[in-house]
Nucleic acid binder design. Structure first.
Lengths: 135, 135
DNA sequence: TTAATTGCAAAACTTTTGCAACGCT
DNA sequence: AGCGTTGCAAAAGTTTTGCAATTAA
């Protein structure tokens, strides 16, 4: 297997820097539209290719929540997400992990857990009162 | 808001019954191909429409793991999933929930958790030895 | 009878890819 | 110079939709 050289292009650098500024977990399209303002001839495929590249290198996270567009997060500290069904915002959930279940999977089932995702869906503080959904 | 009548068609009944027999978390396409053997003029859109219908009614789960095809699960008992990065199989993980984190989100953040997903990715017992990935 | 549902085909939407030109190293 | 990367357009893959015909209630 041959060593591959990776180049630091201005597009790649720009994409990572801008994503790091955002706490909103944007889609590729949202990023593209926003980036285009500062870098007018940036193309959609370059955005996708770099998001995939950065995800593969572990520099960003790709969150595929729904069937449609993935969302991206440049915060790679271990954390979970809360999706508000009311306003569609995504909240970061930081946690201290004392994790029985992971231990169970590794020790009892003899699997190896490489990573995990835990997604919560519900109503945030702001939306809780506004919904008719009282279940 | 008007009451809507839902009909029990033979396609809908068939789709739910067949999915219940499967423990393999198939995609819509896999289901369609398999169903077509027993119901030759079933159409792809009927499969999709009924999977969406059953999901909205809470009778099945739609698991959207990757960017691509959703997978479906007729086991609606609360459980998690383990995705084997080696063989791509999906294992059901049943758990007893004594859940600090959910409680934290509901009590400290004052959010309402409606449902949650926890997905594990790693190597199952069979694949653990075969991979070069020793991290 | 009538409105929900089906089957078919086309459309919609997200993401990837082929290719020539460009630009890091 | 060499080859990774870009921009553009076209393609690929998944899911939804419009519509006339069918069928459950």
């Amino acid at each position: 297997m041959k060593d591959r050289l990776f180049r630091q292009t201005k597009q790649r650098k720009f994409i990572l820097e801008e994503l790091k500024k955002l706490k909103t977990h944007p889609t590729a399209e949202e990023l593209f539209l926003q980036f285009k303002k500062k870098m007018p001839n940036l193309s959609f495929s370059t955005v996708y290719r770099n998001l995939n590249f950065l995800r593969d290198k572990g520099e960003i996270l790709e969150l595929n929540l729904g069937k449609y567009s993935s969302r991206y997060d440049a915060d790679i500290n271990q954390h979970h997400h809360f999706f508000c069904l009311g306003c569609n915002r995504i909240f970061d959930i930081y946690f201290s992990s004392n994790d029985m279940l992971t231990r169970h999977i590794e020790e009892k089932l003899n699997f190896k857990v490489k990573y995990q995702r835990r997604d919560f869906y519900g109503y945030c503080k702001d939306c809780k009162g506004k919904t008719r959904d009282k279940t």
